[in-house]
Simulated assay, not measured.
Amino acid sequence: MTTDIAIRHYTGAQAPSIRQVLLDVYAEVYAEPARTDPFASLDRFAEGLDGWSARPGWSCVIGYDGDQPVGYAYGAPLPEGARWWGGLLTDVPAGVTAETGIRTYALSELMVRTPWRKTGTARRLHSALLSPCREERATLLVDQNHPKVHALYESWGWRTLGELRPRLPDAPLFHAMLLPLPQASSY
C-alpha cells in the first residue's frame, strides 16, 4: 500500500467497462453490513449503480495503487424535478430543493478500501470528482449511524440541510448535505 494513488476519470459511456471493479470494491467495503442489512446488499447496490451510471452526466473517479483499485467516487447532476429530495423530513426554505438539471451534482458514492483509509485518498477522490463540476452546488447523503463520516464531510465544507429517508425499501435515515461548488457564492 502506498499513498501514490493514480486517479482515473470515467463517464457513463465507460461504465460497463468498470462496473465489475465498482462491484468488487463495494463487496469488500460493505461485506459486514451486507450480511445483515438488506439496504447494503450487493444486489441492491448493483441495481443502484446501473441506474446512476445511465444518468446523463454521470461521472466516476477510481483511485489506483499500481493495478489495485483503492476506492472510488461517482455521481451525476440531478435532473429537473428530481426525486432526490422526495424523502426530505426537514422543512427548508422554498426553492432550496428546486432542481433545474444544472443546479446540483449528487455525489452518490464515495468509498475507500481499508488499507488506504486515513491516507487522504477519500479527500483526493472527492476533489477529483467534484472539481470538474459546473453545477453551483453538490449534495450527498450520510447515514445518521455514521457520525464520524458526517464530521469528515463537515470538515470538508459540507453543511447539513436536514434529515432525509429515501423512498426505497429498508432505507436508513440520512443527513442530506450541501456543498457550494467553486462558481457559487451561496445557497
Rank of each mutant, 00 (worst) to 15 (best):
V112M: 01
R134G: 14
L130T: 07
S155R: 15
R137K: 09
L152N: 03
R134V: 10
L141A: 11
R134S: 11
Y153A: 08
V142Y: 02
L152V: 10
R117T: 12
E154F: 05
L129K: 00
V112T: 10
V142M: 01
Y153R: 09
P132W: 06
A122F: 01
Y153W: 13
P115R: 12
A122Y: 05
P147M: 13
L141Y: 06
L125H: 01
L140T: 10
R137G: 04
A138E: 05
E135D: 08
R113L: 09
E136T: 12
N145S: 14
K118W: 04
L130R: 01
R123F: 03
A122T: 01
P147G: 08
E136Y: 00
N145I: 03
E135H: 10
P132K: 12
W116S: 03
E136Q: 10
R123Q: 13
H146P: 04
A122Q: 04
L140K: 07
P147I: 13
E154S: 12
T119N: 12
R113P: 04
T119C: 14
T139S: 14
L129C: 09
T114Q: 13
H126K: 07
L129P: 02
S127V: 14
S131W: 05
P132M: 10
S127L: 15
E135S: 13
A128L: 08
S155G: 11
E136K: 11
H150P: 01
P132R: 12
P132L: 09
A128K: 05
R134L: 11
R117H: 06
A128V: 03
E136P: 01
T114N: 09
D143Y: 01
R137P: 02
R134E: 05
T139A: 14
W116N: 02
R117Q: 14
T119K: 14
R123M: 04
E135L: 08
V149F: 00
R137Y: 00
T139E: 13
T114H: 12
K148C: 11
H146S: 13
A151R: 15
R117V: 09
L140I: 06
L140F: 09
S127C: 11
G120I: 06
H150C: 09
T121V: 15
S155E: 03
R123N: 08
T139C: 13
L129T: 08
P147V: 11
L129Q: 00
A128W: 00
A128R: 01
L152D: 02
L129N: 07
N145F: 02
W156T: 06
V142T: 07
Y153D: 07
V142H: 05
P132C: 10
R124W: 03
L152P: 05
